[in-house]
Amino acid sequence: MEIAFYLSGLVAVLATLGVITNPNPVHGVLYLIVSLLAVAMVFFSLGAPFAGALEIIVYAGAIMVLFVFVVMMLNLGQAAVAQERAWLSPRTWLGPTLLAAALLLTLIGALWRGDSGMLVQGDVLSAKQVGTILFGPWLLVVELGALLLLAALVTASHVGRQPGSDSKTGKEAL
């Protein structure tokens, strides 16, 4: 369990590094899928199989496929990659990286000084227990989540439509 956790954690960090430094959008999406699968492995090793399965199905399956479709639809060529390379000069990334590193050092320092001494044993928390929480005391939160998804559906279909496709009025609403 420990070996699985540390190995997949290493894979997740390296793949995420690949996402943020890659000039090609398609390669970035593929690196992100690898990173999400590694995080799902971390969940399995920590004893959260329901969350791991959801991570694979919803994140790597649904959201990333949406990204792949959009990148395919945009039809970016080699010119876009060259443009990305030009944008990725050290002058651009040095400052943000230093700021993020300072934040990371602060977080790790706080964790190190906290010293809770808790150990994750990897005992499995089954989907049954999660469902009992979700459809018992947390029912209102689930309904709020459903409402959020409905709002996102309406917003995406309104914002994402192409001008001119509205055949009834033929006008651009946005």
């Binding site: 369990m1 954690g9 090793s45 190190w112 906290g114 809770s116 994750v120 044993q121 990897g122």
Partner: peptide, 13 residues
């Protein structure tokens, strides 16, 4: 045996 909680949180950070 087990993973310390700090290591998991450090990975998230």
């Amino acid at each position: 045996s087990g993973v310390p909680m700090e290591h998991g949180l450090a990975l998230a950070a």
